[in-house]
Amino acid sequence: MTEPLLSVRDLTKHFPVTKGLLRRQVGAVKAVDGVSFEVRKGETLGLVGESGCGKTTTGRLITRLLEPTGGRIVFEGVDITHVKQGRMRPLRRDMQMIFQDPYSSLNPRHTVGTIVGAPFRIQNVKTESGIKKAVQDLLELVGLNPEHYNRYPHEFSGGQRQRIGIARTLALKPKLIIADEPVSALDVSIQAQVVNLLEDLQGELDLTYVVIAHDLSVVRHISDRVAVMYLGKIVELAERKALYDSPMHPYTNALLAAVPVPDPRKRADRDRIRLTGDVPSPINPPPACRFHTRCWKAQDICKTQEPPLEALASGHLVACHFPENAPDKPAGVGAHPAEERATT
């Protein structure tokens, strides 16, 4: 196995909660609390979960737009966890981000040429035929007209604006792209076009993606592996087919059960899982398994002992005491701790 392009170990980000005139800290929002995963060169890792689970914060930590509270981020064998901004600047050529909102991520006072050409000027990168020609080539690459060079963002649709953002991201030929909800703000008809564009660019430019999304249909279409987050932690990580065909964590099953099914006959035959209660506050998350307050399979051990994220099948990691669809194992021989307790 070759060394992964990106390795994240026990990554945490706690935002302090302050109170009073002296801004005394009284708590912390545990937005990301011990996340670990790897991304291999050329693959696409999907990061999914409910709003507020820490997906976007994880993406911003990886690109060092936020300073991590703890853990390690290793990119191409280099630990960038606490690298100063001066040393981080050259690394940003290889690590870029596509933002969620194509309306607010583009400066309305700048032309498309200025926006897409900004990375060349900031990084002082010289091009063979000049910045204008390089920008026009990028616009053509993402499906826009090179003549759009002198237009402003307000003259474009949402899908076209997202293409402009993608062109800006590709300017310095990055190796890793963090795509934060790249199609959630777009119409359904445009979403497929942008997703297909990202796939075509990956094959053409040998890109590696971490795609952050809450739309499981989009993630299924574009991802090679999928990580499911809940309240700041990864609860399941597996190859795309294994996760969608045989989800093991109850939370993953609930997410997949909520995906709309267009066929009325299949919709009637499907068992719908309805979670009770609200998502707990990340300021005071539940002890042990954070999903136990909403889980229909929770038992006493779920409230007192946190389940480790461990492999229950080849390449299939799950953090659950009582997983579903888990392969059968002989009692006491490599069995899951919860299974051993159940047999004894």
Rank of each mutant, 00 (worst) to 15 (best):
T2L: 15
T2N: 14
L5M: 11
L5P: 15
S7N: 14
T12Y: 14
K13L: 02
V17C: 14
L22V: 15
Q25F: 00
D33W: 11
S36H: 15
R40C: 09
L45N: 04
V48Q: 02
E50L: 03
S51Y: 04
C53T: 06
K55R: 14
I62R: 10
T63F: 11
E67R: 15
E67L: 13
E67A: 13
I73S: 04
F75T: 12
F75P: 10
E76N: 01
D79G: 08
T81K: 07
H82K: 14
P90S: 04
L91S: 12
D94A: 14
F99P: 08
R109Y: 05
V112L: 01
I122A: 12
N124A: 10
K133C: 07
V135N: 05
V135H: 04
D137N: 15
D137A: 12
D137P: 13
N150C: 04
N150P: 09
Y152I: 01
H154S: 10
H154K: 06
E155G: 02
Q160R: 03
R161F: 02
R161S: 09
P174D: 00
P174S: 00
K175A: 11
I190L: 07
I190V: 14
Q193N: 01
L197Q: 01
L198C: 06
D200M: 05
E204C: 08
T208Q: 01
T208I: 09
V210L: 03
V211I: 03
D215I: 09
R220F: 06
R220G: 12
R220L: 09
R225H: 09
M229L: 09
Y230K: 05
K233I: 09
K233S: 09
I234N: 10
K241Y: 07
K241A: 10
A242I: 02
T252K: 11
N253Y: 02
L255V: 00
A257E: 02
V261W: 00
D263K: 03
K266Y: 07
R267M: 14
A268W: 03
D271C: 14
T276K: 14
T276A: 15
P280T: 09
S281G: 03
I283H: 01
C289K: 00
C289F: 00
C289D: 00
R290G: 12
F291R: 15
A298V: 01
K303M: 08
T304I: 03
Q305I: 10
Q305S: 11
P307Y: 00
K329M: 08
K329N: 05
G334Q: 04
G334S: 04
A335N: 15
A338G: 11
E339K: 10
R341Q: 10
